[in-house]
Amino acid sequence: MKYAPGLFGLLALLVWEAAVWISDVPSYLVPGPVAIVAAFLADPGGLLLSLASTLVVTFAALLLAAALGVLLAVGIASSRLLAAAIQPWAVVLQVTPIVAIAPLIIVWVGNPFASLVVCATIVAFFPVFANTAAGLVSAPAELADLFRLYGGGRIATLWLLRLPAALPFFLAGLRISGGLALVGAVVAEFVAGSGGFASGLAYRILEAGYRLQVPRMFAALVLLSLAGIVINFGLEAFARSVMRRRGEG
């Protein structure tokens, strides 16, 4: 059972490679796994550098999204006026396709790194914000009553009740936002890449596509998937260790 995913993956790769061999498809149409690995090994430095560039954007965006998400969630949890004013706009942010506004952002922000981070932040913002907002009001009403009974002010209630209660919600949101930050970074790189300055993995994919280096394109794609998987499991492990440290693991 434990090895099922690995074995299945290996089997799929074998079938894929065999199919490519037997049907004799040219590698610029469908490259086999061997060709993809070879393309990676031909220029590991360049691809890994691009991966690092994409990951820096991803993590910067994730941190920014988490900070902004928590800040705004605390804002709407403490002020009804702020909640009424902000909440609809947060939804607008969520439903706006980033591909549509990325060119504008790139033009407005100017600095390529900053504009990539802004795009990825917009994509990653909503889950961590919405989850944290839900978590801040998740504590039972009786506990809030108890804080009131003992003269606990808003700050004390926020610090000792609402924020700790929101922690598991925040962590769940962070995990979703982590994957989205990567997607956002890649989408922004695609748009920016056509403008001709970034060096992220998406740019490598575009570049390889133009040059019909399809195995290299796949190699970049595989790196992206792996990064996404690592981010997802990494954030899951992080969430678990935080909760365990709180004695709730």
Binding site: L143, D145, L146, L149, G151, L160, P164, G247, E248
Partner: peptide, 16 residues
């Protein structure tokens, strides 16, 4: 505050 103690139907403890 503190002159009145209140016990609810649930224990309503901070789980963490």
């Amino acid at each position: 505050p503190g002159d009145i103690g209140f016990v609810f139907q649930d224990a309503t403890l901070l789980p963490w």
